[in-house]
C-alpha cells in the first residue's frame, strides 16, 4: 500500500479561476491503475461530502485517447509509450507527492478541473484528413496492391490516438506531431494520393486557425506520445506542405 500526497488542479468551469488543491491519498494498492487511484480518492471525497475531481477517461486501456492528465509536469507521466490510464501505481513510491494538471494549450480550452476541449483536432480532420470515397463506390480491395513497407509506415502513423499529449508537452503548444501523423497515414497510401496537396494545405491552415503554435523542433511531442509516433512525420509534412504550396501557386 502506498501513502501519497496529491496536488490537483481544480477549476469549476471555463471562466472561473483555478487553483491547486492538496489531497491525502493513503492506502493505495500498488496494482491499481493511476485512474483507479483517482477513483479511490474521489470515493473518499464524495463520502466526505465534497465534489469529486473531474477528469476525462473512457476505455481505460490506452486506445480511446480520452484520458488527458499531466502528471508531475509531463503529459501521461514520465513513463514512455503509455497513456495515463495505463500507468500503474507500482511506478510510485510511498511518501511521494504527485502533481496532476490538465493538458494545457490555448487551443484546448478548459471545461472543468482536468477536462479540456480538444474539438480543434476534429476540425483539423474535417479540413482534409480523409479520403473522399462515398460508401459503396469502392473497387475490390485487392485491385490496388500496396507495398507492405508503405502499408506498415501508414499504420505506424495511423496508430495516433488523438489524445493531444503532443500539444500539451510542446512549449509552443504546436499540433504538428498530430497533424503530421494524420496526414502521413493517408499521404503514404495510394488511396490518399489524389487529395494529398489539398489535404496538407487544408489541415495545416486549420491547425493555424485553431491557435496552435509553431514547431521549433524540440521533439517533446515524440517523447510523450503514448503511441511513440515518430517526429519524422513532421519532416514529411513540411516537405509535403512545400510541394503543395508550390503546386497551388503554379495553378
Amino acid at each position: 500500500m502506498l501513502n501519497l500526497t496529491l496536488k490537483v488542479w481544480r477549476q469549476q468551469n471555463a471562466t472561473s479561476e483555478g487553483f491547486i488543491e492538496t489531497y491525502d491519498a493513503h492506502d493505495i494498492p500498488e496494482s491499481a491503475s493511476f485512474l483507479e487511484m483517482l477513483d479511490i480518492v474521489n470515493e473518499r471525497i464524495l463520502n466526505d461530502g465534497g465534489e469529486p475531481i473531474h477528469f476525462d477517461h473512457d476505455c481505460r486501456e490506452g486506445i480511446c485517447g480520452q484520458c488527458s492528465l499531466t502528471i508531475n509536469g509531463i503529459p501521461h507521466s514520465k513513463e514512455r509509450g503509455i497513456t495515463a490510464c495505463q500507468l500503474h501505481m507500482r511506478k510510485f513510491k510511498t511518501g511521494e507527492t504527485i502533481w496532476i494538471e490538465p493538458f494545457r494549450a490555448k487551443a484546448f480550452p478548459l471545461l472543468r478541473d482536468l477536462i479540456v476541449d480538444r474539438s480543434a483536432f476534429d476540425r483539423i480532420i474535417g479540413a482534409g484528413g480523409y479520403v473522399s470515397v462515398r460508401t459503396g463506390s469502392a473497387q475490390d480491395a485487392n485491385n490496388l496492391p500496396v507495398a507492405k513497407t508503405k502499408a506498415d509506415a501508414a499504420m505506424d502513423a495511423a496508430a495516433c490516438i488523438g489524445c493531444g499529449a503532443c500539444v500539451a508537452a510542446c512549449k509552443n503548444a504546436s499540433a504538428m506531431l498530430f497533424v503530421s501523423a494524420k496526414a502521413a497515414h493517408l499521404n503514404l497510401l495510394p488511396q490518399g494520393a489524389p487529395e494529398k496537396n489539398k489535404r496538407v494545405l487544408g489541415m495545416v491552415r486549420q491547425m493555424d486557425a485553431e491557435g496552435f503554435g509553431n514547431c521549433t523542433n524540440q521533439y517533446e511531442c515524440e517523447a510523450v506520445c503514448p503511441k511513440e509516433i515518430s517526429a519524422d512525420n513532421i519532416a514529411r509534412l513540411n516537405r509535403d506542405y512545400a510541394i503543395a504550396i508550390a503546386d497551388e501557386a503554379a495553378v
Binding site: 479520403v131 469502392a138 488511396q191
Partner: peptide, 22 residues
Amino acid sequence: NNIIDQCVAQGVPFAREYGGLL
C-alpha cells in the same frame, strides 16, 4: 465483402503480404 472494399478505399491500413495484397 463490400465492407472490406470500402475500408481499404478509405485508407484503412490493413496488414498486407509482401506482394502488396491483403
